[in-house]
């Protein structure tokens, strides 16, 4: 399979370019997109394929939904993720619900793209990671690819999908490069997590741009003789719970790493699933490494320490492993296996 070296940012452009060349129904709408088309980066296109919109996020997002229902496959470029709140009524009340409230009469093949800017001294209104809010909306698909190949393959899958998909990009990853398959039909399926490195002592589940930190933490842990398995969830809705549960069944310990704020974040949902489905497999309490519930401050001295990083992940993994060992294997597993659980249930 031939490959081409692409940055994460260029993988986005390549995916859009290839899909727009492949399918005349794909259009692009959003603010400041004239820069792309004017520079020719998307190739030679009918001017009706790119719509450089005024600052009207709610309006043009809703228009994309109307266009999707009537035969196009629009990509909406919302630029910075904090702006999605302006468009959220149309995304939540229309894109997510129209198929259901019409009893399946319509399809809504629209993609909303936005980049999460953080660690860049952009302060509170340009630094949000809003994916958990949209995970709470049935009818949407929500993805957060973390590598150039995944970005290209998953964005293409999203454009070809018949449902509304929100693509969260991480601007920390924009400059990262790798060899990306050049095949224009290279697709990465939605709803499937990736095991980035195998391990036996602790499962580190990484969301979106946390992946480089999670992998660095796994490297550090290996030097300490702790074998960490790193799972990149890639797709938040649908969430590949099976891959996470299989890993926890093997390691008995879970660290979830998530750039979103702590309360009701993606990490909280993943932790809840594991607590519900695999409590008996756990040898230590689940650890979450998240951004605390505070606004993102302007000063880099204040901002930088807030996010998950290699050291925080390493510490959380160590804690999980050591707490299990200190307790001589957390008693939960033996409690369940002894049948005590069943007798408790019978009594209540």
């Amino acid at each position: 399979m031939s490959t081409v070296e692409l940055t994460y940012l260029n993988a986005i452009l390549e995916a859009e370019k290839e899909e727009m060349q492949r399918d005349p129904r794909v259009i692009l709408i959003g603010e400041d997109i004239a820069l792309y088309s004017a520079s020719g980066a998307l190739g030679k296109l009918d001017p009706r394929r790119t719509w450089n919109a005024p600052i009207s996020e709610l309006g043009f997002s809703g228009m994309a939904i109307g266009a999707a229902i009537t035969g196009l496959r629009p990509i909406v470029d919302l630029t910075i993720a904090s702006f999605v709140y302006l468009a959220s009524d149309q995304i939540i009340n229309q894109a997510a619900k129209l198929r259901y409230v019409t009893g399946g009469q319509v399809r809504v093949p629209v993609v909303f793209r936005m980049s999460m800017w953080h660690n860049g001294a952009n302060a509170a209104q340009h630094s949000d990671r809003p994916y958990p809010m949209f995970m709470n909306v049935p009818g949407l698909k929500v993805i957060a690819p973390a590598t150039p190949s995944d970005m290209k393959g998953m964005l293409k899958s999203a454009i070809r999908d018949d449902d509304p998909v929100i693509v969260f990009e991480d601007n920390d990853l924009w400059g990262r490069k790798e060899a990306v398959p050049a095949d224009p039909d290279f697709l990465v399926p939605l709803g499937k997590a990736a095991v980035r490195c195998e391990g036996t002592d602790v499962s580190i589940v990484s969301v979106a741009g946390c992946l480089p930190h999670a992998l660095a933490a796994a490297g550090q842990l290996a030097r300490e003789d702790i074998s960490a398995e790193v799972i990149d969830v890639r797709s938040l809705v649908p969430l590949d719970a099976a891959t996470i549960l299989a890993s926890v069944a093997k390691t008995g310990r879970l660290v979830v790493v998530d750039y979103a704020h702590r309360t009701a974040g993606a990490a909280a949902e993943i932790a809840a699933i594991v607590a519900e489905e695999a409590f008996a497999e756990l040898r230590a309490p689940i650890q979450r490494v998240t951004t605390p519930d505070v606004q993102i401050p302007f000063s880099p001295k204040l901002e930088r320490p807030l996010y998950p990083n290699k050291d925080k992940i390493t510490a959380a993994a160590r804690k999980a492993v050591l707490s299990g060992e200190e307790r001589g294997s957390w008693p939960v597993k033996s409690y369940f296996r002894s049948g005590a659980w069943e007798s408790t249930k019978a009594r209540s």
Partner: peptide, 23 residues
């Protein structure tokens, strides 16, 4: 293409359908 119970919600849908016809 939609009957919206969010007041004004149908306006961009209709505008987008017009854009779609043009494209």
């Amino acid at each position: 293409i939609g009957e919206s119970a969010i007041v004004g919600g149908g306006i961009p849908l209709a505008t987008g359908a017009g854009l779609s016809a043009l494209v």
